[in-house]
Write a protein that binds this DNA or RNA. Sequence first.
DNA 1: GGTTAGCAGTCGGTATCATCGACTGCCAGC
DNA 2: GCTGGCAGTCGATGATACCGACTGCTAACC
Lengths: 335, 335
Amino acid sequence: MLDDRKASILRAVVQEYIETAQPVGSGRIAAAPGVDVSSATVRNEMAVLESEGYLAQPHTSAGRVPTEKGYRYFVDTIGSPGALRGEHAKRVKEFFARAHGELEEMLESTSRLLSGLTAWTGVVVPPSAADVAIRSVQVVGLAPTVALVVSVLADATVEKHSVELPRAVGDERVNAASAHLAAQLQGTMRGSVPADVARTGDPDTDDVVLQVLDVLRRTSPADVPDEVFVGGASRVASAFDAVETVQQVLSVLEEQLVVVTLLKDVVDRGLQVAIGTETGMEPLADAALVVAPYTVDGERAGSIGVLGPARMNYPEAMAAVAAVSRRLGHALTEG
Amino acid sequence: MLDDRKASILRAVVQEYIETAQPVGSGRIAAAPGVDVSSATVRNEMAVLESEGYLAQPHTSAGRVPTEKGYRYFVDTIGSPGALRGEHAKRVKEFFARAHGELEEMLESTSRLLSGLTAWTGVVVPPSAADVAIRSVQVVGLAPTVALVVSVLADATVEKHSVELPRAVGDERVNAASAHLAAQLQGTMRGSVPADVARTGDPDTDDVVLQVLDVLRRTSPADVPDEVFVGGASRVASAFDAVETVQQVLSVLEEQLVVVTLLKDVVDRGLQVAIGTETGMEPLADAALVVAPYTVDGERAGSIGVLGPARMNYPEAMAAVAAVSRRLGHALTEG
DNA sequence: GGTTAGCAGTCGGTATCATCGACTGCCAGC
DNA sequence: GCTGGCAGTCGATGATACCGACTGCTAACC
């Protein structure tokens, strides 16, 4: 563990570096509030902090820069989560007061809100539909051997899947299957669609029914939704100096599935913040991710996050993510 | 008009610059195939081309760079659309041979295909649903005063809108309204939903019916869909040198509506290519857009495009966009 | 013993300067 | 009208020196 003085020096270095993005020297730290020793003492302490891996020196005659371990210590010793700044709190409040309409739209703008609050990129993973009740199922014929099964779930989401029919069965059979399925599946949990239901008696109709059940079961455990809303991706351009880093981070953001599993992994590990290699993704070595799950009706539904450079303002980002996740949960619970 | 020699010199400059991204000098052009004069003559011609605005000089002792006008001339004088390179043609062919499943998924991967073919960013605007027949309408109650109207259109797309009900009318009324609407609207064009239909006789049910019709009419002329698929946005990072340009272009791509209207505008002006300020968007001053509409069942449905730097390989990009738009139209017509 | 002032030393950043090389424009000769 | 050749321009590159912001270390101080 670090003694008080080392800790406050380390904290001062991190804060200063986050602000200026420049290596910080002992003089600057000695002048910082909360550090009441001379620059010489600071130098001695910084040398120790470096040897212990909290700080690094780009070159001999430069100031110090926090390492991943340094950021980690900083984040771990942020006492209270910290409240959102007044102006930001107001924006969040107003956003959710005004929030309405389609789920997707709302999540999309939530990702923009996160981006706006932090100056980095906002990410929103939609509620997982793992155990939501089915409100309605409908099968619509589109072509002789193609139909579309549309299911409405209790959380107001709509799923659709196309189904290849074994042969041209005719509209009336499709409609019969649709009505039958609607009756049989209403109220069923999406994650527990049965492999078989009561037969209608007509073999052709039953064929359609079975085909649809098969599709629903195969696509069922949507515990990892493949969709994710990314807001403010353009901020990545100003987050990193190296063009290749920008490109790599953008590439990561383009892979929906990767982003979803990334957030899920981090949340599952119980982290609020993943710094650099902690993300487990090589292209994010210079980045950091602040995440929070949100709950709907008391259950973990999805997660949100902010992706920025490792030198991001953690207290602010964590406050923003916490506030938005709480409010988002509420908004979705009511609706 | 430019005489033959000036034209071939200009073309050589553009081609060379596209390849190297470096100002090109007279010596290089004199060595180019198709130009059989000395560098001195080339110099004289280039001076004229510059005074006429086709070329520009970054500084006195540098080579020439094409201006917007220069690129425009180059594009306008590309004779044949040019066939896709063998390897690329194969990729396109295989992609559409394998294409299947949901429309959205397919359009999404089409945008990636475009990006892969050109090394820049691919954009796909989905088919406009302006005059597509309604295959099915269903109203599902979600909460006492909230329902979701889900309509399946003939092009396999699904629309959903939430509806505020005037008061809690009960599930049976909602279901009655749903059945009634399904019967009344099936086969109607999405763009011509009537303001009123035959009444059911039950006032509460009729209220729901009218409310739904209202929502469908208000959201109806979806001739400008607000969704667009962007593939390979990370390529923007390597397309421009200036970080601010990268950021600005990414910002444009984040605004779905802006991108849709941009493509639409360009196509409506009858252009295949919009260079720099021709796009009408200030942040795209250094960019160029290659577009093509695609047709489904013989009618203009949507458009696709490639967004890259002004110094992009136009013949290749135009060939790619043309091939993909044709194939995409076919794929959507069959399905 | 811990702290501090002071000092020597390191090293990147910036400015200066000369050189180099890739251009151009122009002119005289073919 | 084309071309070879030449003088001139100017950015890019590299050497050099200098400055300034650091550091680590040591000796003195409390």
